[in-house]
Computed example of a mutant assay.
Amino acid sequence: MRPKIVLFGDSITEESFGDGGWGASLAHHFARTVDVVLRGYSGYNTRWALHVAERVFPAATEAEGGGGREAPLAVAVFFGANDASLSDRSSAFQHVPLEEYKQNLHSIVSFIKKRWPTTFVLLITPPPIDEDGRLKHPYGDNPSGLPERTNEAAGAYAKACVEVAGECGLPVIDLWSRMQQLPGWEKACLRDGLHLTPVGNKIVFEEVVESLRQGGLNLESLPVDLPLLVDIDPHVPLKSFQH
C-alpha cells in the first residue's frame, strides 16, 4: 500500500480537490509516491471536528490486526475559519470561543499523535477575511447587513493556531499572514471573502509542500510505487516486476 497524507479541515479543504485546488495539486505532485486523502467537511469547526475524529480516523479492528491502522505519513489540520465566525451575527452557530478553539486544536493533535506517534502533523491557520466579499456572498440570510466574519477575528484565531503549534512543537503555516503579503490579496486570493481562488490555492499548495519538505517528506525521499517506465527493460519487461 502507498503511504498516505491526510487533509483534515473544513470547506477550504473539502473544495481542495476541485479544479486548481491545493489538494488536487498535492495529489498530482506526489503521484506514484503518496495517496493524498481528502477529509474536508464544509462548515465544520474544531468542536465538531473533535467530536467526529474517531469516525474520520477509525482504529483498526481485531480482524485487521489491531494496533491502529497504518500510520499516515502526515496529517494537515486546517480549521479555524468557522470557529472565528462572530458570535452575534448570522453564522453564530459555527462560532467557537478562542480559548476553546485552542484547546480543541490541542485535543485533535493529541488524538492523532496518540494513535500515530510517528505521523507528521502540520497545522494551518485560517486565511484572512475580505469583509466586502463576505457581504456580497453571505451564507444564508444576513438581516444585519454586517459580515459574519471579520479579518480581525480571523487574525486572532490564526495567532492562536500559531501558539498551539509552538506549544505542541509542530510546524505551522500562518496563512493569515502569508496571504496578506500579496498586494490586492482580498480579491486575488479569495473568491467570496473566505474561499480560495486559484492564486490562493497555489499559495496553500506551495506552503504545504515546503512544510512537508522541511519535515523530510519530499519526492527525493519517498520511494516510487512500482517500476518507472524508464526503468523497465524493453527486451524483458516482466523482469522489472520480480522484486
Results as ranks from 00 to 15, higher is better:
G40W: 03
S91K: 03
D88F: 08
F57I: 08
V204W: 14
I12W: 07
T197K: 08
S240G: 12
L170H: 05
E54H: 13
C168G: 04
H106Q: 06
H95M: 05
S42E: 00
V172S: 03
N82H: 03
H95W: 14
I5Y: 07
P171F: 05
I124V: 07
K4Y: 12
L219S: 15
G145N: 05
Y41I: 08
R32L: 09
E100I: 08
H235A: 12
I5R: 08
H106C: 03
H28I: 04
F120S: 13
G66L: 00
R32M: 06
E15G: 14
K114L: 08
E100F: 12
R32A: 09
V209D: 01
A153Q: 15
L50H: 14
R89V: 07
K239M: 03
A81T: 15
I203K: 01
K202R: 11
K159G: 05
E206P: 10
F8G: 02
I173A: 02
G9C: 08
E207N: 06
A24G: 11
V236H: 15
P127D: 10
L222E: 12
A160I: 01
Q103Y: 08
A84Y: 00
W48T: 15
K159Y: 11
E207T: 07
L229I: 05
L135P: 10
N142Q: 10
C161V: 09
P72M: 08
V199L: 12
P58I: 00
T33M: 14
A31V: 08
N151C: 08
F120R: 10
L182S: 12
K114G: 11
R134G: 00
P117H: 08
G184D: 13
K239C: 11
G67E: 02
Q181E: 09
G80K: 04
D130G: 09
L226F: 06
V230H: 09
I124F: 04
G155V: 07
S91L: 13
A24I: 05
H95D: 09
D35T: 02
P138C: 10
K187P: 00
D19I: 10
M179Y: 06
T150S: 13
S221Q: 05
V204Y: 14
A53S: 15
G133S: 07
V172E: 00
R213E: 12
S107I: 03
A76H: 03
T61M: 04
V164I: 06
T13H: 11
V52Q: 05
P171A: 09
P128R: 04
G80N: 01
K136W: 03
E210D: 15
E152G: 07
G20S: 06
A154I: 06
S16V: 00
P237H: 09
S91M: 15
R191V: 15
L146K: 13
D225I: 11
G43A: 02
I173Y: 03
M179Q: 12
V230A: 13
F57V: 00
V208R: 03
D88C: 10
V162N: 04
I108Y: 03
G140F: 15
E210M: 02
E148M: 12
K113V: 06
V236T: 13
P147C: 01
